[in-house]
């Protein structure tokens, strides 16, 4: 986890940066003048904690989207590292190649073997390119399905971590059937005999997210978003301009609170004050608690009932008038 001064600050996080700078100044003065300033420094550190809480308590939907894309935010492999032991990453779809934007493998969660699958983003320019900015190709979805089937065969529960700006819109992706790959996953996930828990940990954009997003319990992190299209693309199509992304974010009602109120997600996973990027271990611990609770609950149900419950859960989603 990056520490100040290597931290990056979004526009609305600037007040925190200012406080850090003040601490820096005090420390320098203290060193020069040999005066003990630890009291003032502690006060400023408390002020930083307060500010972190304060900022996330009243974010606009668009700011929430920005936070979900925070360059310091932890990604799938980080959560797996912090939550589990004995993680064994598995590669490849057995067909075309290994998609670096989709990762997965077995790990021990609280003493039990669980299959973890999720989109992976990179934390620097080189890694971002390698991970294709978390936008999987069809082979990524097929790799995910292969791992899910593997888990099903050995009766291990599945946890998916969702964080993608969308499935990759490329030429080869179309040639290899991006639509079919996502469709197949949605269909097969409906029928998995083992418990499936999905967590939206950052960006949950469209079919690219849903391609690993069908499960018995859907959890969503406090500062994640989930909807049918990214606010930028929605703005481009409906407002015919890139500029209305803030309005689009508002209209799409894409925050965790919205999604929980709509009944489209089951639980909001709280984040450390100011967001997951302030405390990776803390964020992973909070997520682990939610995942274990959800797993314990769905394990109580017999596999056949679990599948029909899963189908019924999604069949209830929607709104219409009946004349």
């Amino acid at each position: 986890m990056p520490q100040y001064p290597n931290r990056q600050f979004l526009d609305f996080e600037q007040p925190i940066k200012t406080l850090y700078e003040e601490i820096d100044k005090l420390k320098q003065t203290a060193e020069k003048s040999k005066i003990d300033m630890s009291d003032s420094i502690r006060k400023l550190e408390d002020a930083i904690d307060d500010k972190r809480k304060d900022i996330t308590s009243h974010l606009t939907p668009w700011q929430r989207v920005q936070l979900s894309r925070h360059p310091d935010r932890p990604y799938t492999l980080k959560y797996i590292e912090k939550m589990t032991t004995a993680f064994m990453e598995l590669y490849g779809d057995r067909n075309v190649k290994d998609d670096k934007a989709m990762v997965g493998g077995f790990a021990q969660l609280d003493g039990e073997t669980v299959m973890f699958i999720g989109q992976q983003k990179g934390s620097n320019t080189k890694m971002r390119q390698l991970r294709n900015f978390g936008m999987p190709n069809p082979e990524g979805y097929r790799k995910a399905l292969r791992l899910m089937k593997l888990a099903e065969k050995f009766n291990k529960p599945i946890v998916t971590l969702i964080d993608t700006p969308g499935a990759f819109p490329g030429l080869e992706a179309e040639e290899r059937g991006q639509g079919e790959a996502i469709a197949r996953n949605i269909y097969e996930m409906m029928r998995l005999k083992v418990p499936v828990i999905c967590v939206i940990i950052g960006e949950g954009a469209s079919g690219g997210a849903l391609g690993i997003g069908v499960g018995d319990k859907i959890l969503m992190m406090e500062n994640a978003w989930y909807t049918v299209i990214s606010p930028e693309n929605c703005s481009t199509i409906l407002w015919r301009s890139w500029e209305k992304k803030e309005v689009a974010a508002e209209q799409l009602k894409l925050t965790a609170t919205n999604m929980k109120n709509f009944g489209l997600v089951d639980e909001i996973v709280p984040e450390p004050a100011g967001g997951a990027h302030w405390d990776y271990a803390g964020a992973a611990e909070l997520m682990k608690i939610s995942i274990l609770r959800a797993l314990a609950e769905v394990k109580q149900v017999a596999p056949d009932t679990r599948i029909s419950n899963r189908i019924n859960k999604f069949c209830k989603m929607g709104f219409w008038d009946e004349l």
């Binding site: 949605i186 079919g207 049918v228 799409l252």
Partner: peptide, 11 residues
């Protein structure tokens, strides 16, 4: 219909 339309794919 935002996320509701997305969920129709699952439904």
């Amino acid at each position: 219909e935002s996320a509701f339309s997305l969920m129709q794919m699952a439904k």
